Simulated assay, not measured.
Amino acid sequence: MVTQEPIDWDDAYSNFAYIPDGFGYPAKWLEQATSFREEMDRKGLLKLDVSYGEHDRNRLDLFMPSGDLRGLAVFIHGGYWMEDFDKSAWSHLARGAVSNGFAVAIPSYVLCPEVRVSDITVQVGLAIAHAANEVAGPIHLTGHSAGGHLVARMMTATSPLPQAVRQRIRKTVPISPLVDLRPLMKTEMNETLHLDAVEARLESPALLEPQEGIDVTAWVGALERPEFVRQNALLANVWSGFDCRVEAVEEPGRHHANIIEGLTDPDHPLTRNLLGL
C-alpha cells in the first residue's frame, strides 16, 4: 500500500516564495504598466476608468490600436480574488494585442471578503459585456491565475455573459488558471475567501460543462508550482470530453510571475495563440 503524505495546501499555492526575487515583481509590473499607460495617453489611444457598475472598483481601462480595429481582447487580473491589485498594475499586458490591431479592456473588480468569488464572476461578466458594447468585432479573453479562473468560468454553460456576447468570443486563454476551487477551502486564504463546498463546486470550471464549440488554450509555465501545472492540465483533460476545442500548453522556462510577459510581445506564441494569428 502506498501512503500519500498530507498536502500542505498553503505551500501548494505559494508562488512568490519559490520565484527568485518573487516579491519584487508587483513593483516592476506597476512601473511597466504606468509607463505604457502614459505612452498610450500621449497618443490619444486610452480611455481610463470606464464605468461598468456601481462600485468604485467597477471600472475598466480601454486601450485602442492606432490603425484598423480587428476586435477586442480582455485581460482579467489575478491575486486570488482578494489581493490588492487593480487594473493599473497590468496595462503593459495590452501591448501585444494593441500592436496587432486589437482594442484591449482591463477591468478591476471588487475583492473578497467584501464580496464572494461568485459575485466576482458576475462582475467580470458585466465588465466583458460592457467592453463588448464599446468595441465591435470578435472577442478574445485571457486572464492570469484567479483571472484565468474567471475567463474559464465565462466559457462554462452557466456563464453570466449574455448570449450575444458569447457568440462573439473566438478564443479564450486562461493563464495559470485555478479551475478546481475545492482545495482552496483548506488554505488560510479561505478565511478571506469564505468558500464553501457548494460555491467551490459551482465556481470551478473543471467541474462544469463548457459551452459547445468554444476554443480554449490553458497556458501555464513549466516552472510553476506543481499545483498550477496540475490544474492547467485538469481543465484540458476534463473539457476534452465535450464538443469544444481545448488544449494545454506548458511554456518552458516560465514561472507564475513571468508567464504573463508574453502578452507584451506582439509576436510571442502566447499573444499569437490568444489572437488566433
Rank of each mutant, 00 (worst) to 15 (best):
V238M: 09
V238L: 10
V238Q: 10
V238N: 09
V238F: 06
W239R: 05
S240T: 06
S240Q: 07
S240V: 03
G241A: 06
G241F: 02
G241P: 01
F242W: 09
F242S: 05
D243W: 03
D243I: 01
D243Y: 01
D243M: 02
D243Q: 05
D243G: 02
C244Y: 01
C244S: 04
C244W: 01
C244Q: 02
R245S: 12
V246G: 01
V246Y: 00
V246H: 03
V246M: 00
V246E: 00
V246C: 01
E247F: 12
E247Q: 15
E247N: 12
A248P: 03
A248F: 05
V249H: 04
V249M: 05
V249C: 05
E250N: 11
E250G: 15
E250S: 15
E250C: 14
E251L: 13
E251N: 14
P252D: 06
P252Y: 07
P252C: 09
G253I: 06
G253N: 07
G253D: 05
R254L: 10
R254P: 15
R254W: 14
H255Y: 15
H256R: 03
H256F: 06
H256P: 05
A257K: 03
A257C: 10
I259D: 09
I259L: 12
I259A: 11
I260V: 14
I260M: 11
I260W: 07
E261L: 11
E261T: 15
E261V: 08
E261N: 13
G262I: 04
G262C: 02
G262E: 00
G262V: 05
G262Q: 00
G262H: 02
G262T: 05
L263R: 04
L263E: 02
L263P: 05
L263W: 02
L263Y: 03
L263I: 07
L263A: 06
T264P: 13
T264F: 11
D265H: 10
D265W: 08
D265G: 04
D265R: 08
P266L: 04
P266R: 08
P266G: 01
H268L: 09
H268V: 11
H268D: 15
H268M: 13
H268S: 14
P269L: 12
P269R: 11
P269G: 12
P269M: 10
P269I: 10
L270V: 13
L270N: 11
L270G: 09
L270I: 13
L270F: 15
